[in-house]
Amino acid sequence: MKGFTYLRKVATLKLDQEKCIGCEMCTNVCPHQVFSMAGKTATIVELDACMECGACAINCPVTAIQVESGVGCASGLINEWLKEHNIGSSMGDCCT
């Protein structure tokens, strides 16, 4: 995104170009223009711009895209960790 970049080389986004049928759905749904068409298949051109929202993966009809999506705020993650370790949390959900 113009003017904003987050940590480099951490996004879990993966595209299997062998599977891609070139429907261009990923290029339509990505709000950060991570994908671009290279001939008849999609390709990842801006991996570091990926915010792991998961829109591309769920809308890929041939499941050629994989990404670990989910809550991305600090308090949300702390709550998740607390739950994983069965520690009661008083912070509540960050964005219900």
């Binding site: 987050y6 996004a11 670990e68 809550v71 949300g76």
Partner: peptide, 23 residues
């Protein structure tokens, strides 16, 4: 720093993996 880190939840460009790493 803690409160700024928490703001990642409000942005339109941070990723879950990035926030995890940073935390």
């Amino acid at each position: 720093a803690f409160y700024a880190l928490n703001f990642t939840g409000c942005t339109t460009f941070t990723s879950r993996s990035g926030v995890k790493k940073e935390m």
